[in-house]
Design a protein around this nucleic acid. Structure first.
Length: 117
DNA sequence: CGTCTGACTAGTA
DNA sequence: TTACTAGCCAGAC
């Protein structure tokens, strides 16, 4: 499993500053679809020497986890401009898909060509 | 092997 | 919004 852990750590390290991701997202990005729990297990064993942005990992609903480190996680997130309300963040605002969604939704209407099929 | 547990998630009430 | 449920899979015993 150590190899999978490495992939997970790489996925965590790839989270941009000021952005957050869920365990499931991390697992998926590590090529481990539906292995959210594995991502959590890996993060629990995160070597401090890697200095991973573990604080950018939250649950799918945006709630912070890290037992005993809620304060620290919230503090670090706020330091990056992520708004934390009552121990939660808005995934739609700070999630990884925010950029992509913004581009897609702001896409020009383009011409609606009638196409069959 | 079987069973329990967990830094999880989606669905329902 | 919270509470509970079923599904999930890897690790510890």
């Amino acid at each position: 499993m150590r190899e999978d852990y490495r992939r997970i750590y790489a996925a965590v390290a790839a989270i941009p500053r000021g952005r957050v991701a869920s365990y499931g997202e991390i697992a998926a990005r590590a090529g481990l679809l539906k292995r959210a729990r594995l991502a959590g297990r890996a993060l629990r064993e995160t070597p401090e020497e890697l200095e991973l942005p573990w604080h950018r990992i939250v649950r799918a609903d945006g709630s912070l986890v890290c037992p005993g480190r809620l304060r620290e996680q919230a503090r670090r997130l706020r330091a990056e401009g992520v708004e934390v309300r009552n121990g939660r963040v808005r995934m739609s605002e700070h999630g990884l898909h925010h950029d992509l969604d913004s581009e897609l939704w702001s896409m020009p209407p383009a011409k609606q060509k009638a196409r069959a099929g």
